[in-house]
Design a protein around this nucleic acid. Structure first.
Lengths: 150, 150
DNA sequence: CTGACTGCAAAGAGTTTGCAACCTA
DNA sequence: TAGGTTGCAAACTCTTTGCAGTCAG
């Protein structure tokens, strides 16, 4: 993966720096989390001090352009980033718990049908979509939380 | 509608002010637009100078709490507000043109099926959802725009 | 060596808030 | 008159940018 990154960067005349390595590693190790730039910053800070928040932003944006990450907004005005694993590219939605803030992934291809319908009815050419469900996760339901805080 | 607002406010011990009236009117007259706070500000400024941007924010948020408006984020980090007409409450999605920025509404109830599936599979209790499609609208396709200008 | 990259601090954009004056009921 | 509401400006949060020093290749 490290090598893949290096090659991809080289092709664009860019360089592999320790900061870029450590950010990628952090994101990879976490798997399917949905971190804000600030959370990524805190995370890599535990490993090194040689990085700034500005670099985190620049690096995350770079990785988005390289299709290593995907930007994702959870509706609270803060950008989040997640691994762009090709397999779940298009059929990958988010369940956002309004009680505890956790973000759960859900895969389904039901939207294909809807996209076809939209193309026909509205003449709109779809490139991407974003589907989020807000509500109350299983754990919070058990705890008896209402799930409607905010 | 004016009266309805007055009553609704009274029930909460709140008051009907000229600013609140004019904001509601502006939103109602526009029908199904999706304005940012700043756009609402510019709009009402053409009618009166007796209003500030801070009041626009406070008023829009108040109307959201009263279910007169719905907050809606188009993915560019700016909050937009739209009339919360009950009829289209749940089956109401947005097509966002990446080329010209226009926002088109689309109604469909296909998500019901998906929501049922999610409740069962993930045990997640859904309160609301947000579905946005990004792509290229009919007009921009005619003009030969690619529809991916960020 | 060269120019891509970084940290820092300052600037931006959008939104919220404290406070004194104001106005609705 | 009372306290909800407003305008103003300052504060806040998240994100971007300019710049001089640094470092990868």
């Amino acid at each position: 993966m490290e090598e893949k990154l290096k090659t991809a960067l080289h092709e664009k005349g860019l360089r592999l720096t320790p900061q870029r390595q450590i950010v990628l590693e952090a994101m990879l190790n976490l798997g399917e989390s949905h971190l804000t730039a600030d959370q990524v910053y805190s995370l890599v800070k535990t490993q090194t001090n040689d990085i700034s928040l500005a670099t985190i932003y620049r690096t995350l944006e770079l990785f988005v352009e390289m299709n290593l990450l995907r930007r994702f907004d959870s509706g609270d005005g803060v950008a989040r980033y997640e691994i762009d694993s090709q397999k779940s590219e298009h059929y990958h939605h988010h369940l956002i718990c309004l009680s505890c803030g956790s973000i759960i992934e859900f895969n389904d291809d039901l939207l294909d049908e809807l996209e076809t319908k939209i193309s026909k009815k509205a003449g709109f050419k779809i490139a991407d979509h974003c589907l989020r469900f807000f509500g109350c996760c299983k754990e919070c339901q058990k705890k008896g939380k209402p799930g409607s805080s905010q």
